[in-house]
């Protein structure tokens, strides 16, 4: 296992505008190494934009995003390689097999031993039995596992997941929750956007609620999960009334 510097994500006054619409509005966040954070909020609250901005896919209109102290705007491939992203859509090639998809991305990541990395990731995610099947023939839950395997190919220190539970049945969702728990090690940051407050209370150790692009609530999830859930629902009701 390669050595890494202490890692943390720092957002300072981050604003992202799409024309006149502010998706993120002066967001300040400190996410230390070992965090397992749930990001929640109503549709259009800025959750996906927050993830995209941290991943370096979206450039903030103003403010700064730093990972391990390095500004994302100036991040080179080595810093970007610390990040693994599972987007809302799995973005897999439906006509390629699972193995072909994984090998392609291992190649793009520039891994020294792509074949071994594919084997490791697929074993970890339990997708080894479907390696030779085309993605188009897989269920939504299995596709999601393959997308996670792809994100873990290069053993990222920051894992960003955008609504990974969408379209999963209860069994697949429970299995994903277990997996996220397992992945949330003290060396890694796991950031997941969610809609289900019960799920947010079950695994993550911190809750960030966005409302209109601003951080409306940022709290550790401890024994007070019922209070936190109630506060969150209250914020959602306010949002609906607005």
């Amino acid at each position: 296992m390669r050595e890494r510097p202490a890692l943390g994500i720092s957002l300072e006054q981050v604003t992202k505008a799409f024309g006149a619409q502010l998706a993120l509005d002066h967001v300040d966040l400190e996410i230390p190494q070992g965090s397992f954070v749930a990001v929640m909020g109503a549709n259009g609250a800025g959750k996906t934009t927050l993830l995209r901005t941290i991943a370096g896919i979206a450039v903030p209109t103003s403010g700064s995003v730093r990972i391990a102290g390095v500004e994302m705007r100036r991040a080179g491939p080595r810093l970007r390689a610390l990040i693994g992203v599972v987007a809302h859509e799995t973005m897999l090639y439906a006509d390629l097999t699972v193995a072909e998809n994984l090998r392609f991305h291992a190649g793009l990541f520039g891994l020294a031993h792509p074949r071994e990395a594919v084997e490791r990731a697929s074993e970890r995610l339990g997708v080894t039995p479907v390696l030779d099947r085309p993605v188009r023939a897989l269920s939504r839950g299995t596709r999601q596992r393959v997308a996670l395997a792809r994100a873990l190919l290069h053993d990222p220190a920051v894992l960003l997941l955008d609504e990974p539970y969408t379209g999963l049945d209860e069994a697949a969702a429970a299995s994903l929750s277990e997996l996220l728990e397992e992945l949330a090690t003290p060396e890694r940051i796991v950031l997941v956007t969610l809609h289900d407050v019960v799920r947010a209370m079950a695994g993550p150790r911190r809750l960030v609620v966005l409302s209109g692009g601003r951080v409306a609530l940022d709290t550790p999830i401890d024994g007070r999960s019922e209070d936190i859930a109630e506060t969150y629902l209250g914020l959602l009701r306010q949002e609906v009334r607005r």
Binding site: Y93, D95, L96, E100, F104, G107, L108, G110
Partner: peptide, 16 residues
């Protein structure tokens, strides 16, 4: 290297 991986992937997709 990424360009070659992309070309390989596109050819494979096209073959299928």
């Amino acid at each position: 290297a990424p360009a070659l991986w992309l070309a390989r992937k596109d050819l494979r997709l096209e073959m299928k």
